[in-house]
């Protein structure tokens, strides 16, 4: 293995690696946070559980990260799922209504919510595979209708949940870390095993790279697409359970609002292109944590939560530009000409 810093080609490869810029931005934000508030990076142990801002970030970033993992699989197939926010609302509405109003036991209620989320994903996948709708239109249907369905389930009310088992995911801790982080770890591991230890990951990338070529080479394109959308629905369902657990209630009107956009941003920041093909699950998790860290750092610098989207947009654009080949080519041209001007007599390297 060559030392990346001494070998310009290795360095270039690191710079081109999908998640590099998200990691750089994450590190920069953590430093900024530590400068703005000295206790920003400290973690302490209390009551058999870790506390501190980094743990907070992990805890609150987990929901978006879980959705982003499902979204990564869909985006890898050159698709997109706009309905995840609505599916979160449906799942949380189902679990809350079943437990609080129908008196159903929590394992059945949770299974019901996840089952509905899985169905939602299969529905999206069917529209994409069998009706051959564009993913953005196919999932727009459930995005628009899904929140209405969730409101139908809760009858437009906010349904509160007192069952401690349902609230567990949002507030309890497992192995020193908040339970949501454990859920994220389990889902990441499953997704990684499913895509990197089987051929499924390659199938996803092949379908996203060139669907026709994938079909001609014998890849079962339709099942691959169905599984990707179903997995995305299921991840949104888990996020719905977490959302319900956090606030100990189902708020069909606001649960998962704009979550689809956060998740897509997390995926893109993590280096998976919207044009499909190669994907990075780790990158998406880093992307989600980057967004959450940004939120925290903006709090540290006293930026109001309402204005926060503006600096977020600026950073997102910056990371996207750094990942854009066109922008990089333009930058390196400028760098080369600057270098040539600084050292007259030496030729600019090709």
């Amino acid at each position: 293995m060559t030392d990346a810093a001494s070998d310009p080609r290795g360095m270039a490869r690191v710079l081109r690696a999908p998640a590099t810029w998200a990691l750089v931005a994450l590190a920069a934000l953590l430093v900024a946070g530590a400068v703005g508030s000295p206790g920003f990076l400290s973690v302490e142990m209390r009551d058999g559980r870790l506390y501190g801002t980094p743990i907070d970030i992990l805890n609150h970033g987990s929901k978006v990260a879980i959705v982003a993992i499902g979204m990564t699989l869909v985006i890898a197939t050159r698709g997109v799922d706009l309905s995840v926010g609505a599916v979160v609302a449906i799942a949380s509405a189902i679990v809350a209504t079943l437990v609080s109003q129908k008196g159903v036991a929590w394992p059945i209620a949770m299974a019901g919510a996840l089952g509905a989320a899985l169905l939602a994903g299969l529905w999206n996948g069917s529209l994409v595979t069998f009706l051959r709708l564009q993913p953005i239109v196919a999932t727009l249907v459930l995005m628009v209708a899904g929140r209405g369905i969730a409101q139908l389930i809760t009858d437009g009310q906010i349904v509160t949940v007192r069952d401690p088992a349902v609230a567990f995911l949002g507030n309890a801790s497992l192995l020193l870390l908040p339970a949501t982080v454990s859920a994220l770890a389990v889902i990441s591991a499953l997704a990684w095993l499913g895509t990197r230890r089987t051929a499924f990951g390659l199938f996803l990338e092949a379908v996203g790279e060139n669907e026709r070529a994938a079909r001609l080479s014998g890849i079962p394109v339709r099942p691959v697409l169905l599984v990707a959308y179903a997995a995305c629905g299921l991840c949104a369902g888990v996020a719905g359970l977490i959302d319900c657990a956090y606030i100990r209630a189902a708020d069909a009107n606001n649960a998962g609002q704009l979550l689809e956009l956060d998740a897509i941003l997390a995926v893109v920041l993590g280096g998976t292109a919207l044009t499909g093909g190669r994907f990075s699950l780790l990158g998406s998790v880093i992307g989600a944590m980057l967004m959450q860290t940004l939120t925290k750092v903006l709090y540290v610098f006293d930026v109001s939560a309402d204005i926060a989207p503006a600096p977020k947009a600026a950073i997102v654009l910056a990371v996207c530009l750094l990942q854009s080949p066109t922008f990089r080519a333009a930058c390196s041209r400028h760098l080369e000409s600057a270098r040539a001007r600084l050292r007259p007599g030496t030729e600019a390297r090709p």
Binding site: I307, P309, A313, V316
Partner: peptide
Amino acid sequence: FALPAFLVTLAGMFLARG
């Protein structure tokens, strides 16, 4: 910069709202 319209206008949405 050949960036997807979806992303750029999504950032634009956050920016304008902020």
